[in-house]
Amino acid sequence: MDEMVIEMAGIIKSFYVGTPNELQILHGINMVIKKGEFVSIVGQSGSGKSTLMNLIGALDRPTSGDYRLDGEDISQLSDNELSDIRNQKIGFVFQTFNLIPRSNALRNVELPLLYNGVAAGARSRRARELLELVEMGDRLTHLPNELSGGQKQRVAIARAMANDPSIILADEPTGALDSKTGRLVMDIFHKLHRQEKKTVILITHNERLASETERVLTIVDGRIVSERFPAADPATDPAAGQEG
């Protein structure tokens, strides 16, 4: 009785549609992700990982194909409806953190709550709680430029969790961090997956980190070419990878 959060069938994404230099990036993606799954997507640079991630996160619409998020057909929704879906069902984590530079940690985390119409008091309570969850409770009033890369990413993860979305989308969240800090961030994703029962989709270039997830999808030139379940392969069991 597994519930599907993401169901993609024959998803095609092209850029510059209708112009002579029309460019097809995704050539028919078929993919299903279960609720509470921790999936990683790997592939070479330019293979279309981020493009796929943007479609999953309702930031963009597919050129053709069928995409259901929580059973709902996304392609027919208005801009405002897509905004609300991003606000309530998706939590984005970016490689470059994308914190609002003029706002402190607390106010960055409050942002999705603000767009969800949460009242000021509740907003700030929730934001504190989340920052404590990522062990940033002592940095509430710091501006992004007063934080290290790892700290910024933890704030960004807290922000992604603000409206308690069911899906966390992380596009190379450790890409800008050293391996030790990356480890810390990765541990938070494990925590979100195990304790908070989130569906986590992780794009990474790091095979080691990918192998810690439940399922690894490999994308080559806009097609998913392989699927791997690391847990079934004892050599890459996350429990075995202890060095940082």
Binding site: D79, N80, S83, F94, N98, L111, P112, Y115, N163
Partner: peptide, 16 residues
């Protein structure tokens, strides 16, 4: 521009 993109990713409607 990036900030605006981020805000939209976080669920800001165009009107916001």
């Amino acid at each position: 521009t990036r900030e605006i993109g981020t805000r939209k990713a976080l669920g800001a409607r165009n009107s916001a």
